[in-house]
Design a binder for these strands. Structure first.
Lengths: 341, 341
DNA sequence: CTGTTAGCGCATTCAG
DNA sequence: CTGAATGCGCTAACAG
């Protein structure tokens, strides 16, 4: 097949120099409107597509700098996201990409906002953000984007902001999948319990809602939704009380919340028929629970893929100015059982 | 951070020219042994990493040509693999990669062998292969590899050949996962049936074996393994007969084989309690069966990922001479339920 | 055997 | 406003 069309070819065809073509293609000033149009037209006609290698090479004196803002590294879940980021970065390393991780507490919006501003001042070419959703944060993100630094959110979105796009899980679907599984392992008239962290947080609520909606009319009833505030004590007490009060409960959906506490309660219940338990993600406690035969299914959101895709999209955007086509990119939601481990 | 080390830097440090360094780094002949060693040492010391962009750019006059040999495009499953291949190719397109698809019947080894030879003669830089396993094929693959054209098998391996590596599914694991699911949806003493295509084919046998092994001692018995030879008639008759003879059967594992026939039989059985059915892959018949509520689970092997990874590994190998670390690359095996669709 | 040189396609000066 | 020239890191062809 033919070599693909180069900037030079369109230059000769347009009767201008390569420099001019470059200016047009990259939306830089200093080209007379009619020349610009002509060049554009020819580029379209020839179906010009820039050579990524050449571009990267030319860029390589000034390496691409991207800032990554996420919760403290102790959080296991984010470690997996990092793995995905690193994988993508490895593939792009030859092209001079430079990552700067900034760990920020999930509790303090001011800190997050400050870090964004600092990165922008330092001249990063793009930002990946995954901390909390807050007005202060929203403001900083908007300022960054306005000043030309693209921001992509991942795993947890900052809604109503000017962030370019969000890469994460389809939460209601993960709730529906949990419901589908529950309906398959339990026989029809039966009762289940739901455990969540904070129902005031969108991510937590969305799963519970997806679960409930899908189950309604199926003959499987949700007797209670427990809110444990991600604390051991609250979760433990409330769950224990509920299970004691409703001995007919056969299944538990742990949408979010303190898994350790749930496991402890379940172990202590000492029932003839074990509970059917469905969890989310693959934190160590969940994996442990699966190996012990306590947890039947866990629904995972492919954290590595979230990291991988975020970086790649940002890279594409920065280097080629290619805007993502969608606002929301959902990573695959999949089901894990002990045999999958 | 510092710019990464270039060929020129190691050249000055070694007191030789860039050409020589290039020769050493790429294992090309024409360098005195002691010079070669010195250069190698310095490269190690400086922790030299080639610049992928520059490499790709320099190569771009002579585009990378890879041949892809797979079954006819009508087969839905392979279409998904193609999607993965195309995705990777898109990412590498800027780097001048050129795909040539060759569709070959799964029945005729001679054709496959001939295509391999033809591709090698045409001077492809690498081959991806996924048709049948046969001595003739093995021979052609070995010849290709010996003459310097790397071959990677995907989805279905050619064992005992010199192919660089295999990218595909962990078949026994997929059988075990099916068993795990079956054990969770059925209560303990119960009976199930297995449907397969050809038990003489490794891929088919491996799943059945994984399923059986994992179920042994669980209280769930396999009353029969049906071999349908991927034909409607055989599958239909045998399955119907078995289900009629053993009305106590509660679950069916469709490891491989003619899904359409299975669906027809099941629909015709008219039972009060529906069967619990587990299938593999996401062919249209399976998707249909799931939507109709006949199939509970299907175990998928991420065909797109198989294509994606194969291409990337081949690219790495050709461009950077980086041999894969393993012989077998298993793609993620995941579980799909109707709610995941 | 080894050094030199001319591109690969693009971004980015610096002159006009 | 536009053209020409230079270099990114590497390969390959050509001189020595």
């Amino acid at each position: 097949m033919r070599m693909s069309v180069t900037i030079r070819q369109i230059a000769v065809k347009a009767g201008v120099s390569r420099g001019t073509v470059d200016r047009v293609l990259n939306d830089r000033p200093g080209v007379k409107p009619h020349v610009r149009e002509k060049v554009m037209a020819i580029a379209e006609e020839l179906n010009y597509v820039p050579n990524a290698a050449a571009k990267a090479l030319a860029f390589s004196k000034k390496p691409l700098h991207v800032g990554i803002i996420m919760p403290p590294r102790e959080i296991e879940f984010f470690q997996e996201i990092r793995d995905g980021i690193e994988e993508a970065a490895d593939e792009l390393k030859g092209f001079g990409i430079q990552l700067e991780y900034c760990y920020v507490s999930n509790q303090n919006p001011e800190e997050g906002a400050a870090v964004i501003r600092k990165l922008v001042e330092d001249g990063v070419n793009g930002i990946m953000f995954s901390v909390m959703d807050d007005d202060l944060i929203r403001l900083s993100i908007n300022q960054a984007v306005d000043s030309g630094v693209p921001v992509i959110t991942f795993n947890s979105d900052v809604e109503q902001s000017k962030r370019i796009c969000f890469v994460g899980q389809n939460l209601p679907q993960s709730g529906r999948i949990a419901a589908g599984l529950m309906a398959r392992v339990l026989r029809s008239p039966s009762k289940v319990l739901v455990v969540a962290g904070h129902l005031s947080i969108y991510a937590h609520r969305a799963r519970v809602k997806g679960f409930g909606d899908h189950l309604s009319g199926s003959g499987i009833d949700i007797v209670q939704v427990i809110e444990g505030y991600d604390r051991f004590e609250d979760t433990y007490e409330k769950l224990k009380e509920a299970l004691t009060r409703y001995p007919e409960i056969e299944g538990i959906y742990m949408a979010t919340g303190h898994i350790g506490a749930c496991m402890d309660v379940v172990k202590g219940m000492n029932r003839p028929n074990r509970y059917r338990i469905i969890a989310n993600d693959l934190m160590p406690e969940v994996e442990q629970g699966m190996r012990e035969g306590l947890i039947d299914f866990t629904i995972v959101q492919n954290p590595a893929q979230q990291g991988y895709r975020s970086i790649r999209m940002l890279y594409e955007l920065i280097l080629n100015g290619k805007m993502p086509e969608q606002q929301y990119y959902y990573t695959e939601t999949s089901i894990v059982i002990p045999e999958s481990l």
